[in-house]
Design a protein around this nucleic acid. Structure first.
Length: 799
RNA sequence: GGGCAAGUGGUGGAAUGGCAUACACGGCAGACUUAAAAUCUGCUGGCCGUAAGGCUGUGAGGGUCCGACUCCCUCCUUGCCCACCA
């Protein structure tokens, strides 16, 4: 007979909802703890990744609560975005209705897993009471010059007459109509996130409870690189070509220059050259290719000689100027100096086009070789050669000296380049926050006044997926009056990227119903920062960077006083089936609902926590979940076999278990915490538990299997919720062992074990060890060279 | 190409300088049962051995150390992230 999980789970979910067991209030009595899991996109069904993410959070939340913290543990829905819009197009329904239906379904599933959310704080980003504050934030940024408009390239389907997201471009064609996608320049809204790049980089140092790799990924994304901008004169024209390099130590080895095909100087320098026609047709060909094709790593680098020459300022050498597809206009200055011997891409290109090479860095301790002998570029450190007055210097030292010298001589100047681009936020889509801007014939671009917010998204419209932004076709939305001059005007029809919505939702959770601003300053002051944030590694860059940026912006606005939003971060691993990511397209989805029907939510929770540590990948094993179910039944049966008084050794095991479980939960080692609870249960089966010990076990199980534990707690005669009890404390005195097993090694190999009193002296221990009969055959009366004693652990005899 | 992880029984994993394989899955055996399921108990890395026991063993090779899954070096493999980024 298995325990009645269906009845129990439904019962307690009802009671928790009725009693509002997990609602959080500002108050000085308990220390605050803000625990947040990344909110889901309401796509319909919950998947195992969600189950994992939210179970990890739930255990921690319940644990912290029982440890005496005032826990804020909210949940909401990231409800704007393309899937709803696509569903609306496909099924000819409304995006709002579809989204609400999905939210209702998902909320139900989350509740059936027993998560301890404060449901009174639920938010959905697609509702005007949320997105009006997106618009408000937009306006504040606009006022401060942090939002601007400029042309940007988008993927464009000429047939659908609409922009496409990268993932909607399949093999260079539109996913819906298979037409070849082209690139098109459109006026787009941008956020000047680059204004915060220094702070975003600097403050990474404060995030010492974040995973190392997330910090590294953010650093790489910001991409600060220090180098020199060098000015190359052209031979026949007055133009200067600036080139950015981080390897100014290799300047004497620069044997040609390469410009990006879009470089503005290309046309000027090739004018009248014999190569002009050929070069122009090459450029036309390259610029037509989409970026996806051009940046594919397996494509051969192509290029062409322009007929023009540049002068290398350090040695006045004439070097040819080329145009090639591997140089990008977006990075640096759109022009590079090529050093084939010390840059692999330049090396391959020079070999392919018979361009000269010169070695200028010699690896330490190696014989000089000819550049013709090289099979690949040498990119490491070494000694300067063929570098004029810098010969013989280590290149790292030369780097600094050359930069100084070039600045003195006016050949270049030290510069810093960043990889970070400004953030394109406009989308030619329907299902997003309308951008609060009005275009007036007389006044130009006019911000919607704050009092007119929200600019409501019209909700009953037809969308076809064709003809650009759907809002263009809603007359009542588009036509308006200019807030300044009251003449006829047109509304912006672009909406915001959904990353905007999720960049500040953690602040909204502090006061989700506040109507005087995006959040109540007092509440945010109390709850922020988020003490623990939990989510997938796929958000390691964009979402986290944008959230950090918004936090810094709110700080500058004077709305909050913290610089970083997330104190501690946990990135959970993916859920795999047969070594592959679970996904619809692979058809290997294990549905949470059917598992819960068979074993209950508590068994599913226990399995997902027990089977792997949170950060690693989790391999789904249908049989292992049955083991978890059996374990719960095993615990359930203890109820009917309690003793009056348990034996002392069990009490000791209990204290050890309390220590281990408490420490493991705090460190997110849920798998070993559960393992030690299983060991505890095995010990109970050996010697029998009394009521007190059994209830301590149940309390420790309660964060993992809340319904199960509440039920046993109640059946044992307790009136209030188990989550109102205190987390058990261990008695340090109970942990002390009187006897300890000492390992005895001979030459590092275990040859014997002895039991000795814990507080034995070192000399006495030595004496006992050497007297051990079992060692005799290994010692063979040979002299002892060394004797290592590690107190309470081992003795190693070296002979 | 760069960065970051990881590699341990048949399987998921534990041990982060001191008894390798905790806990669980699977497998085998026993008890209970007319029988099965459920449950309880025991065994379960490989090789040699009837056994006691011995040897060997944490991707490969080397190093440091009395002692290495753990630290260092070289290499291999896998995963994730980034990338014609100068």
């Amino acid at each position: 007979m298995s325990y009645p999980f269906k009845k129990i789970e439904a019962k307690w979910q009802k009671i928790w909802a009725r009693e509002k067991t997990f609602s959080a209030k500002v108050g000085p009595q308990r220390k605050k703890y803000y625990l947040l899991e990344m909110f889901p996109y309401p796509s319909g069904k919950i998947h195992m990744g969600h189950v994992r993410n939210y179970t990890i959070g739930d255990v921690f939340s319940r644990f912290k609560y029982m440890c005496g913290f005032n826990v804020l543990h909210p949940m909401g829905f990231d409800a704007f975005g393309q899937p709803a819009e696509n569903a609306a197009i496909k099924n000819k329904t409304q995006a709002l209705a579809w989204t609400i239906k999905c939210i209702n379904w998902m909320r139900q599933e989350l509740k059936s897993l027993g998560f301890s959310y404060d449901w009174q704080r639920e938010i959905s980003t697609c509702l005007p009471q949320y997105y009006r504050w997106n618009q408000w934030i937009f306006l504040k940024m606009f006022e401060r010059g942090l939002i601007f408009k400029k042309e940007a390239v988008v993927n464009w389907c000429p047939d659908c007459q609409t922009t496409l997201a990268n993932e909607e471009v399949v093999d260079g064609s539109c996913w819906r109509c298979k037409t070849e996608v082209i690139e098109k320049d459109l006026e787009q809204w941008f956020i000047k996130i680059t204004a915060y790049k220094e702070k975003l980089l600097e403050d990474l140092a404060k995030l010492n409870s974040w995973p190392e790799r997330v910090i590294t990924m953010q650093e790489n994304w910001l991409g600060k690189s220090e180098g020199v901008e060098i000015y190359f004169k052209t031979k026949d024209t007055a133009e200067l070509i600036p080139v950015f390099t981080t390897r100014q130590d290799t300047i004497f080895g620069a044997t040609y220059l390469v410009l990006a095909p879009e470089h503005p100087l290309v046309e000027k320098i090739i004018k009248g050259k014999p190569q002009e026609k050929e070069a122009l047709s090459f450029i036309a060909k390259v610029t037509k290719e989409s970026k996806v094709v051009r940046t594919a790593s397996d494509v051969k680098k192509e290029g062409i000689f322009t007929g023009a020459y540049a002068i290398n300022p350090v040695n006045n050498e004439e070097i040819p100027i080329w145009v090639a597809d591997y140089v990008l206009m977006e990075y640096g200055t759109g022009a590079i100096m090529a050093v084939p011997c010390h840059d692999q891409r330049d090396f391959l290109f020079a070999q392919g086009h018979n361009l000269p090479m010169r070695i200028v860095i010699q690896p330490k301790g190696q014989q000089p070789t000819a550049s013709s002998q090289m099979t690949q570029a040498y990119e490491g450190d070494g000694i300067q050669v063929n570098s004029g007055q810098f010969d013989g210097l280590p290149n790292q030292e030369a780097k600094i000296k050359i930069a100084q010298w070039m600045e003195e001589k006016g050949m270049g100047k030290r510069t810093v380049h960043w990889r970070l681009r400004d953030w394109l936020i406009s989308r030619q889509r329907y299902w997003g926050t309308p951008i609060p801007i009005i275009y007036c014939q007389k006044c130009g671009i006019v911000a919607v006044p704050e009092k007119d917010l929200p600019v409501k998204l019209p909700d009953k419209i037809k969308i076809s997926g064709k003809g650009g932004s759907p809002l263009n076709y809603v007359k009542s939305f588009v036509s308006t009056k200019c807030p300044k001059c009251k003449s006829k005007a047109r509304r912006e029809t672009d909406t915001m990227a959904t990353f905007f919505d999720s960049s500040w939702y953690f602040l909204r959770f502090c006061s989700p119903k506040f109507t005087q601003g995006p959040f109540d300053k007092k509440e945010a002051h109390f709850w922020m920062p988020v003490d623990q944030y939990i989510g997938g590694i796929e958000h390691a860059i964009l979402h986290l960077l944008y959230s950090r940026f918004f936090t810094k912006f709110f700080k500058d606005l004077g709305w909050i006083d913290i610089a970083e939003p997330f104190q501690r971060l946990l990135t959970q691993g993916m859920v795999l089936k047969d070594g592959e990511v679970m996904s619809k397209s692979r058809g290997n989805i294990v549905d949470a609902d059917s598992i819960m029907k068979k074993y209950g939510a508590d068994s599913l929770r226990l399995f997902i926590l027990f089977t792997a540590p949170p950060e690693t990948e989790l391999e789904w094993d249908g049989r292992a979940i049955e083991g978890c179910f059996k374990f719960l039944n095993r615990v359930w049966r203890i109820q009917d076999n309690l003793k009056e008084k348990a034996q002392d050794p069990l009490l000791k095991i209990m204290h050890k278990t309390i220590k281990k479980v408490s420490e493991d939960i705090e460190a997110f080692k849920f798998n070993t915490a559960i393992a030690s609870l299983m060991e505890f249960v095995n010990a109970i089966y050996q010697s029998g538990a009394d009521r007190e010990i059994f209830l301590k076990l149940i309390i420790m199980l309660s964060p993992f299997v809340p319904h199960f534990s509440e039920e046993i707690w109640q059946r044992s005669g307790n009136k209030s919720s188990i989550f109102k009890t205190e987390w058990p404390k261990y008695d340090a005195e109970c942990l002390i062992d009187e006897l300890v097993t000492i390992i005895i090694q001979v030459n590092g190999k275990v040859r014997s074990k002895i039991e000795v009193p814990t507080e034995i002296s070192e000399d006495k221990l030595k004496e006992l060890a050497l007297a051990d009969e079992k060692l005799k055959p290994w010692m063979q009366n040979k002299p002892i060279k060394n004797l290592i004693v590690v107190p309470k652990k081992l003795v190693n005899i070296v002979i």
